[in-house]
Design a protein around this nucleic acid. Structure first.
Lengths: 217, 217
DNA sequence: AACCATATTATACATTTGTATAAGATAAAC
DNA sequence: GTTTATCTTATACAAATGTATAATATGGTT
């Protein structure tokens, strides 16, 4: 039976080590291909610890996923566009946010972005929770901002369509990173590289949105 | 030892059934999670057939992958921009091509596009061959076309960058299809839906390219 | 019709993997 | 210091899986 409240401090250390090692493994290999024996070895923990603390591999994965995105959101909340804000500036901020989210390998969170990207590529049963708690709010905000960039006469469908394109532009570098690397187009990873890249992506997307708005008029 | 030239006609039937079932399985579950017993069962073939005809699961996978993209390219060659062609028209054609390639579930090729998309998401040892034989040529052509859209003063880096964006826009619907579906944004699948979608994607991308070209000037 | 190469079948084997648990070790409570 | 809750260890087990092969069946050739 998994215990939710560890009663001794060595227990919370063991749990933490397990969660950290599991996060790395799941981010790198995916749920199926991650190996519980290796996770335990990396964590410096006995194999039985997974049964003891989490019950099953899947329960461990769920906990890793939830924890990762909670911490990620806590350290960098979704930027909201307030009334009076410049939509273009808000859009640039939002693009930067999404790109940082997936691309930057944070020292304090080496696997959070990667594990979420993996859930996009290879959905598991945990995807729905991840969508409703993390992705949907981010997307909603992006739809609002794109709506502000378009004219009020543009329909919801166009707003959603443009949002999809923007999300695609922001997520593809991570999803297709291996292929881009082999094309000689390595993906930016540091905070500065990603910021510069985000500027270009935002301009490209702005041009696209304006083009579709013009055609729609 | 796998035999390369089947000597009897029931052999080529068995091989073909195996390749078809394996294609489905690899496209749906990926290399690791595809199950050889299930593949053989679906193919109506004995388990030993994989050893007999291909040797190993990995060899079977390679053959499936190569066959899939050979046939796909044979039935629809990469559209080339000839001298004198309108770059914008060529661009629209190329975008349509890439989107059809990944999105349309052809009746004669139910898994080719999917298996290639999967290779992008989860690269295996076979990715390099796939890149050099299929993706690189398509990308090269896209770089040429994008170059024609930009002014000659724009550098190679900008051409490559724009091309990456276009590829991202075209591949993301397949890569992130499950997520888009949960966002209430189902991905177009039929020939007609994809054609309409391709028109929008092309306009969006054209707007983006022009924006970056203007900024660069 | 007899023969031989080749395809098919059934089965076995070795690994890997997730899970469970009994026995032992250890820290906190009394 | 003894007791007790709980963490850790070592080990076992069953299921799944890729691979290999001896035995059998079968189609083509002479």
């Amino acid at each position: 039976m998994p215990s939710n409240k560890p009663k001794r401090k060595d227990a919370i250390q063991t749990r933490a080590a397990l969660l950290a090692a599991a996060g790395q493994a799941f981010a790198q290999y995916g749920f199926q291909n991650a190996n519980v024996r290796r996770i335990c070895a990396d964590a410096g923990v006995n194999l039985g610890a997974i049964s003891h603390y989490f019950g099953t591999k899947e329960a461990l994965y769920r906990e890793v996923l939830v924890l990762a995105h909670q911490e990620l959101l806590a350290m960098e909340p979704v930027p909201r566009m307030e009334p009076g804000d410049d939509p273009v500036a808000a859009f640039r901020r939002a693009v930067g946010y999404m790109l940082r989210f997936t691309l930057v390998r944070r020292t304090n969170h080496p696997h959070a972005g990667r594990i979420i990207a993996r859930e996009i590529r290879e959905p598991t049963a945990a995807l729905d929770e991840l969508i409703s708690r993390v992705m949907q709010p981010v997307r909603q905000e992006m739809v609002r901002i794109v709506g502000a960039l378009l004219s009020p006469s543009d329909g919801l469908a166009l707003r959603e369509q443009c949002t999809n394109f923007v999300i695609g532009l922001c997520v593809f570098p991570e999803l297709g990173g291996e292929v881009l690397k082999r094309f000689g187009q390595p993906v930016p990873r540091t905070e500065e590289e990603v910021a510069a890249f985000a500027g270009i992506v935002a301009e490209f997307a702005l041009g696209g949105i304006r083009q579709l708005a013009a055609l729609n008029a």
